[in-house]
Amino acid sequence: MNFDELSTIQLDALREIGNIGAGNAATSMSKMINEKIDMQVPSVKIVAFNEVMDMIGGADSLIVAVMFQIHGDAPGTVYLLFTMEEAEALVGHITLNSDVKLFDEGAPNEFAISALQETGNILAGSYLSALSDFTKMNMHPSIPHLSIDMAGAILTVGLLELSQVTDYAIIIDTKINDVNMKNGINGQFMLLPAPESFTKIFRALGINDYD
């Protein structure tokens, strides 16, 4: 499929997918930490691979990522991304220990990391189940993969399959944050559907390819 030729309706449909997924995830997060969580209007961007890295601060910026592969009718990759500070704020809030660090003197803090992984699991799971309900398609997540490393290295994984077909990615990007901002809890969902998934998603939503 040619990414340049997405119609307004198709772009709207992808935005709605981000809306529904992240909306459900925000509700889960809100319940988990007992705070109101806000969601920004999702953006759908068609970007060159290098711009994907730039969207989160450049290829060698340090990020915390929980990644899932989506299996089933519409394969793809979902990332839940945090900065180090955001991840620690979230883990601190969940474990009721605001001093918690992901690394203690260079060594990974297993407790904090497993709390983060589990949180990521719940959030991405609710993102995907909303998507699956909305599109009536079968989508199930792989086990969560947590990585704290350079953005370029982490995000390339989601681009590999696309890269055999195109030099661009369609990214459905949604940011969530706590309403009063006092806790510094923010996160970002990035959904990268596999090339063959777009037509299936549009069809499932009753949108003709050539509208």
Binding site: G58, M150, A153, T156
Partner: peptide
Amino acid sequence: RTSGLGSC
């Protein structure tokens, strides 16, 4: 320079 090599 090139940045953020993973599997690349």
